[in-house]
Design a protein around this nucleic acid. Structure first.
Ligand SMILES: Nc1ncnc2c1ncn2[C@@H]1O[C@H](COP(=O)(O)OP(=O)(O)OP(=O)(O)O)[C@@H](O)[C@H]1O
Length: 725
DNA sequence: AGCACGACCATTTTT
DNA sequence: TGGTCGTGCT
């Protein structure tokens, strides 16, 4: 069969095996994704029904790319494959079955921001506050619990012990209740609700078991408990399952991903077989050696061999920089040099970092050097305020119970319904136990609201009713255009005529063209279809490589991608690895896997940079070189600008002139006997670990996490701190 | 009701 | 450093 010609022997064997459950375990760049893609093509070629294949990927973009590739291989019947992320596929199923679990099929999907807003509103409603936790932290906790499949009831009855946990439990319960009342689900519900559905409705479960004859999962190492449960529900001995992954690339533990899903696969699925792919096609020998020297510092992983026919290639280069501006500048310069000497395009270059906040300095330098770039992730288009405002209207038109969205648009654009009036209406709704939307209809009964404002509410209600009635008559695009026009949003931004408002203007325009495009690809799409899609779009999905520009992103976002030239930036203790408090081993190992992922994105050449000081919260913080740099096999790396300290720094300093105001106090740096990460003792507070060092001269401060006395910031001049033995 | 200013807090990583 | 939130003034 022709399809198989693009594969090596091991890959062919894995593609052709289609009997028992099986797992393909393999290192980076060995063609796991390719095998999955070809396997699906192979199945279809051999008469398997595309619509009975369920393929689950990590991002929407990965799904789209895989599907496109399969269409290329076997033609457009591949359109019928059920392919997408766990979240999008199960959202689709939930929409079809919503009634069975007590939701309307037009339910809204809340993203993180919406969820945080709801938590806030719960806190207000319950009239509680938790000192050490803000709404966003509480939301993270709830989400984490949901990921572990710990229900609010269980948490509150059996797990929450101290006062804070009890309060969180109370919020958790209320939050779920309110979600339900709003006919809404958060991201985690998209995985949990289907489990409820399948557990309580045997007939529906049978229906989907009949539908999906073959289930394939990419990036299995990053699936969580709920996803595992879903797979267990959907598979029977007659349904085939194939999962693909690399335990060394599991980087979402903080979100509940469990490598153990992978380690236990053979036990979990009867008669399971494991396949391996060992030839790497992506990287040079040196990059692979370097990556291997990193990952072998982790304990207990599935043993894998990885070899390549590629030659050793160049060594990795380490760039030592004065601070983050210097780092950004050196990288920009380096890029200019490399595109001419290597004759590569900007598209072939990626700059990776540990956290989004690191991109700022890099962007600034790239702009100065006139190097075009694109950022993947970051603030995503559909999360921008002006876009979410309009989407908020659409959501309310689709689902009047969606209180968060209703509150969002109530006074936007301003129509004279202020916060006090809104709270009065909310109180009224709660007292009578009716939706806010109904309260708007009965606003004349809410006597606390001034008459003039009651009229405004009434008018707004009529405005919404009009569109609610129109939603079945107008197309999605007609509806949205009419809405935006009547709201006068574009006019408003234009009149304001600031740089910011013009940006917003453009974004609204872009939303409209996005809708136009969506309507084109999905001709009969309703507002519900569009909203379902929008909630699950992420920043990672909007990536196109048409324009010629450098790619900037977090390492998490780079998973599965590859670039000839890769920069890994900010390789300093407390940034990468970003370890907080006293190192827990599993945390540092996840950081190490992250570094492994970063290295293995590269095909030809890696630059690793670190800065000796960096602005953090407006203060200078002194940094020390990442332990990961030390762990690299020395035969594979060299330091590029050794001994380049003051001299190079000065020259570049001149370049940035006013940008450099702070003086880098090298003397102080050398004199100190400890650095970030050192264990120190203090006469009063005992033993602790240095978290950060800030300021210069007499103002130099150290933040230390003491084992017994908690975290303290001390003035170095007075505190008697010594290195612990 | 709506704006301006100041206090405070923040940095993981994202479906 | 910069963005968000609350208060107090108009
Ligand atoms: N048999 C093959 N012949 C030629 N190129 C191959 C072959 N198999 C894989 N490749 C190439 O190797 C690269 C890596 O493949 P792929 O992305 O499928 O690997 P992966 O194992 O999924 O990687 P990662 O774990 O990093 O996501 C791709 O550029 C792919 O085209």
């Amino acid at each position: 069969m022709k399809i198989l010609n693009d594969l090596n022997e091991q890959q062919k064997t894995a593609v052709k095996f289609n009997t028992a459950p099986h797992m393909i375990v393999a290192g980076a760049g060995s063609g796991k994704t390719r095998v999955l893609t070809y396997k699906i093509a192979y199945l279809i070629e051999n008469g398997f029904q595309p619509s009975s294949i369920l393929a689950l990927t990590f991002t929407n973009k990965a799904a789209k790319e895989m599907k496109d590739r399969i269409i290329q291989l076997v033609g457009k019947k591949a359109h019928e494959i059920w392919m997408g992320t766990f979240h999008s596929i199960f959202a689709r199923i939930l929409r079809a079955e919503a009634k069975k679990i007590g939701y309307e099929e037009n339910f809204s999907i809340y993203d993180r921001e919406d969820s945080v807003a709801l938590v806030n509103s719960c806190l207000q409603g319950l009239n509680i506050s938790i000192d050490s936790l803000n709404a966003s932290k509480i939301q993270s906790r709830i989400s984490y619990l949901k990921n572990q499949m710990i229900s609010a009831e269980e948490y509150s009855k059996h797990i929450a012990t101290d006062l804070i946990e009890k309060k969180v439990a109370e919020v958790y319960l209320e939050y779920n209740k309110r979600l339900k009342e709003n006919n809404s689900m958060d991201f985690d519900d998209l995985l949990l609700k289907p489990i409820d559905l399948f557990t309580n409705h045997q007939r529906i479960l049978s229906k989907y078991r009949g539908q999906f004859k073959y289930i394939l999962v990419d990036e299995y190492q990053d699936t969580n408990k709920a996803q595992y449960e879903l797979l267990k529900h959907l598979t029977t001995t007659r349904i085939k399952i194939c999962v693909v992954g690399d335990d060394a690339q599991s980087i979402y533990g903080w979100r509940g991903a469990e490598i153990k899903n992978m380690l236990n696969f053979e036990k979990d699925f009867a008669k399971a077989e494991t396949f391996r792919l060992e030839q790497n096609y992506r990287s040079t020998g040196n990059i692979l050696k370097a990556a291997d020297s990193i990952i072998k510092n982790n304990s207990g992983q599935i043993r894998k061999t990885l070899w390549t026919e590629n030659n050793d290639g160049e060594q990795l280069s380490v760039l030592r920089c004065t601070d983050e501006k210097d780092e950004a500048y050196l990288i920009a310069k380096r890029i200019k040099k490399e595109i001419t000497s290597r004759k590569i395009s900007l598209n072939e270059i990626a700059i990776l970092y540990r956290m989004n906040s690191q991109s700022r300095a890099l962007e600034e330098a790239l702009r100065r050097e006139k190097i075009p770039y694109k950022i993947i992730g970051g603030v995503e288009f559909y999360r921008r305020k002006e876009v979410k405002d309009i989407v908020g209207y659409l959501r309310v038109i689709a689902n009047q119970d969606d209180e968060e969205s209703l509150l969002r648009i109530m006074n936007y654009p301003q129509r004279g319904i202020g916060n006090t009036s809104i709270s009065k209406m909310i109180d009224f709704s709660r007292k009578l136990d009716i939706p806010l939307f109904t309260t708007m209809l009965r606003v004349f009964e809410v006597i606390e609201v001034k008459e003039r404002i009651q009229k405004n509410v009434k008018q707004f209600k009529l405005f919404l009713d009009k569109y609610i009635n129109l939603k079945n008559e107008l197309s999605l695009l007609e509806l949205t255009s009419a809405l935006v026009d009547e709201l006068g949003i574009l006019r408003m931004y234009k009149e304001e005529n600031s740089q910011e408002s013009m940006q917003r203007y453009d974004n609204v325009q872009e939303l409209l063209s996005g809708i136009a495009e969506f309507s084109k690809t999905n001709p009969n799409a309703t507002i519900h279809d569009f909203l379902a899609d929008v909630s699950l779009i992420t920043g990672l999905d909007q990536y196109s490589d048409v324009e010629n520009s450098v790619t900037l992103m977090t390492i998490h976002a780079s998973k599965g991608l590859e670039f000839p030239l890769v920069f890994i930036t900010g390789c300093e203790e407390d940034i990468f690895p970003l370890n907080q408090r006293f190192d827990s081993n599993s945390q540092i190992e996840e950081e190490r896997r992250l570094f492994y992922v970063a290295l293995t994105r590269a095909e030809k050449k890696v630059f690793i940079s670190y800065a000796r000081s960096r602005y953090r919260f407006g203060e200078v913080a002194y940094q020390s070189k990442s332990r990961f740099i030390e762990e690299l096999d020395p035969a594979t790396v060299h330091e590029l600008n050794k001994g380049n300290t003051r001299k190079g720094g000065r020259r570049r300093k001149a370049f940035y002139d006013e940008l450099y105001q702070e003086d880098f106090d090298e003397f102080n740096q050398e004199r100190r006997s400890f650095r970030v990460g050192s264990r120190v003792t203090h006469d009063m507070f005992g033993i602790g670990k240095v978290l950060k060092i800030t300021g210069t001269g007499d103002n130099q401060k150290v933040t230390i996490a003491f084992e017994e006395k908690g975290t303290k910031t001390l003035l170095l001049k007075f505190a008697n701190i010594r290195l612990a033995s």
